[in-house]
């Protein structure tokens, strides 16, 4: 067995996995705090990538600034999405909210196709073509950037939720919204902050992955699907679950693609998830509502 190839596959898998983690963390955050399944989550990933592309092209700024601008802009859009599509429906049946987010997803995908054009685009990044070498392992700088930024952001998010006042308010809302409101937690503010964080995370993932793959307006459904798969694997509503689930999915897919069949890599990834779910239906770290 060739250990260098194996290590290379694992390294690539970890980087892909980190993008899954970034996507899935937002999804799982919105679910755990607000009990909302946001189908439009992938569209914010798509918007993040496209905003980066257009910020670099139209404003003429460098890649890093474009990525920051895109992330902030999409996070601001998250405020709007919450006010129009989620906050007004907070007392409705969960199907209604789910469908409202599905409507938002269709709106953003098709609106994106109308505005950005359906042809694939490449985001330019100075890091995409230079490489980092560690022993015999070769990784592009962009992929190192994805991994490092992802890890730092997740750490910061974890600290924010654990120790900041807002983080504590979010955790209180997650446990019991009425109880939290009674003790003076501003639920409206919690909704806003949660959506800003989730949409910002998705956009950041889009801005980071943009230079390593083609972007097109329907990429959002790919992203939300990956996010959901990770979230099922790790357990809905669990951030450690999203981390472990995302990284393992990335590595499993890379190994299956490298050693079994590239075409079936995704299907093999899914198949392993089903085996895990047969053992733990609620996901690795999840707490399920059971009948």
């Amino acid at each position: 067995m060739d250990y260098i190839v194996l290590a290379q596959q694992i390294a690539n898998g970890l980087v892909n996995g980190m993008t899954y983690v970034l996507i899935a963390t937002g999804l799982t955050l919105v679910f755990s705090v607000l009990h909302i399944i946001n189908f439009a989550h992938g569209e914010f990933y798509m918007l993040g990538a496209f905003f980066t592309y257009f910020a670099a092209k139209l404003l003429g700024v460098d890649y890093i600034s474009a990525a920051v601008i895109a992330t902030l802009a999409v996070a601001a859009l998250g405020v709007l999405a919450n006010r129009l599509f989620f906050w007004p429906l907070r007392k409705e049946h969960e199907f209604t909210i789910l469908l409202s987010s599905l409507g938002l997803a269709l709106l953003l995908t098709n609106g994106g196709e109308l505005l950005f054009g359906a042809d694939p685009k490449y985001v330019d990044s100075p890091f995409a073509d230079s490489i980092v070498q560690a022993g015999q392992l070769v990784v592009t700088q962009q992929r190192v950037l994805i991994f490092v930024v992802g890890a730092v952001i997740l750490l910061a998010l974890n600290l924010f939720i654990r120790h900041s006042r807002m983080g504590k308010m979010m955790r209180a809302t997650a446990q019991n919204p009425e109880g939290a409101a009674l003790t003076g937690v501003n639920i409206r503010q919690v909704y806003t902050v949660t959506f800003v964080l989730a949409c910002g995370l998705a956009a950041l993932a889009g801005a980071l992955v943009g230079p390593t793959a083609m972007i097109f307006p329907t990429v959002g459904s790919w992203a939300v699907l990956k996010g959901f798969i990770v979230v099922i694997l790790g357990g809905l509503g669990s951030i450690p679950g999203a981390l472990i689930g995302g990284l393992s999915l990335g590595v499993i897919e890379a190994l299956a693609g490298g050693y079994i069949s590239l075409g079936f890599a995704q299907a093999i990834g899914y198949a392993i998830i089903i085996i895990v779910l047969l053992w733990r239906p609620q996901g690795l770290f999840g707490i399920a509502r059971r009948t």
Binding site: L236, F264, Y270, R289
Partner: peptide, 21 residues
């Protein structure tokens, strides 16, 4: 065996597997 949102997402996953295959 599971209900609610988890069930919705799980069926989405199964649907995607069949689509991919």
């Amino acid at each position: 065996r599971i209900v609610g949102p988890q069930f919705a997402i799980l069926t989405l996953g199964f649907g995607s597997i069949i689509y991919t295959i």
